[in-house]
Amino acid sequence: METLILRKEQLPQFIEHLRREYRVVGPVKKGNLVVFAEISKAEDLQLDYVTTMIPPKKVLLPQRETILKFKFENETPKVEQPAVDGKIVLFGVHPCDINAIKVLDKVLIEGEFKDPYYAQRRENTVIIGLNCTKAGEYCFCTSFGTGPGAKDGFDILLTDLGDRFLVEVGTDAGKKIVEGFKELSKAEDADIAKRDEILKKVAESIKRRIKTENLETLLLEKINDKIWQELADECLACGVCTTVCPTCFCYGVIDRVSADFKEGERIRYWDSCMFLEFAAVALGGNFRPGRDARLKHRMYHKLVYIKQQHGVFGCVGCGRCVEFCVKHIDPVDAVTRLSGD
């Protein structure tokens, strides 16, 4: 892999370079939060952020998306596929979120059924990652090897070395971008050593941990543990945890017809297994009527079922579901208690 150096004062030009071909979406400040939004210049970026509340997933799998439009002419409806937005650079994506996109790719593209809407957006998206130089209070990416440094899943990866960025190229698309920007210089061994030193420090600062050895066996053994009811007594079933999770991909689909009944659209929106209606079926049945069953399902899906189905953990340890849950319901804490440590 090629490694280069981008000096910080070159960043504005680099963003300009990207914007010639792409819309650039990166972390920007909103009040006390940082959110992913389209930027027009480098100064908009807030690159020292820890974690956004809503993950960059919102670009690839929008919360609300029209997947087809229909129009009634004569007796048969005319169906039309809305165009997917153009080429995007996701800039400054942290390793946990890069790995979360890898999970989404596994499920939505590489699985048995390909999600054409996601796949098309993914195709049009370049990921410029950003290794972490500090960790948040709730981070536990080291448990899954999904941070604080990214190993793959990016087109280009940056590490902030103080006055400059180390630039690693991961794919041909990334290569094309850096080749088009002649101002980059070659990285020295010392730069790479500095990256490793920073990442080691960040990794050491992360104290929260889920033990992943035998996790599946442990959880399947404890499926009827009283902890689930205890957590369900606290859980508000508000659905924040799944809304902020970078790997949650479940959606609902609804048809909306216009008020003159002449046309309509099919919309999909993020759904949540924390809601009562999620597992409801016809004739009033519901597979998970209890909050305990729903909360357990959420954690088991991340830690057991996605692994069984797709070979990777469905959790990347970003900590969002803990940080933004008003009850701070915490998979790390749950697993720690279950394992008796």
Partner: peptide, 8 residues
């Protein structure tokens, strides 16, 4: 909501 945990 459909399943509010008012107590919590």
């Amino acid at each position: 909501t459909k399943d509010p945990n008012s107590k919590a």
